[in-house]
Amino acid sequence: MNGRSESLKIAVEKPKTKEFKKRSTKLNLNWLLGGIIPLILLITWEVAGRIGLIEAHLLPTPTKIINEIINMGAAGTLWGHIGTTLLRVGAGFFLGTIAALILGSIVGYFTVFEKLMDPLIQAFRSIPSLAWVPLFILWMGIGESSKVTLIAVGVFFPVYLNIVSGIQGVDRKLIEVGKIYGFTSAQTLRKIILPASLPSFLVGLRSGLGLGWMFVVAAEIMGASKGLGYLLVVGQNTYSPHLVIASILLFAVIGKLTDSLLKNIEKKSLSWQDSFSNQR
């Protein structure tokens, strides 16, 4: 019995190891393939900059941009800017999500509220982010409150939309099953509606975070003294394109890292789902 179970164990494990090796090789190959064009572009850009094919005051070389980031990091100024921006995005993301969660749940669950509130919310959604800037400055000044509010506005809409569509998209048959089991409204909400709308909510969170990073640039343009958006404006106003590109690069990297963090949370939260992505 013992020997038999051992051989079974080996039979199961061997293909797994092979599959893992195959998968990691494929992953490395994907990384290599994905890196070819960016690498060619970077080398071409660097060479073109060095031989004077590109004007340095318009587009500095990648090495100059990387040096700028390293120098700011070494001087200690970079971390203050990154920290400030992260705090603003974090606060705006939190407030926007809370507001979307409350309003989205009400609108999604109660038809009356949908008819009452949704048209107005949809109308507000079409207002561009920069259109809010003069009003927010007027109402809240140039301090943190106006910046965080602007980011919260950006985060709110995608999260709200996904919560509403998530709740409204819950399978009717699941609700019927809940009724058969004699679930109360609270139990139906907790055991059926929330888990069923969770995938949609998490997608909304990721979209909201993406917009949060877009809105923080608009927010930090309005009278900041710190932050990556401020750094971008400093670069613009002191004719330092390397600083502008360095800021853009930092936005891209930090934005990607925060998105990856949310993606991991999403993966862990939805591990129970019998979906295609969980089978891969």
Binding site: I137, G141, I142, G223, A224, S225, Y230, V233, V234, N237
Partner: peptide
């Protein structure tokens, strides 16, 4: 130093 365009600086 708060970076604001001239007119916005006056308003602030």
């Amino acid at each position: 130093i708060i970076n604001l365009q001239h007119a916005d600086g006056a308003a602030a």
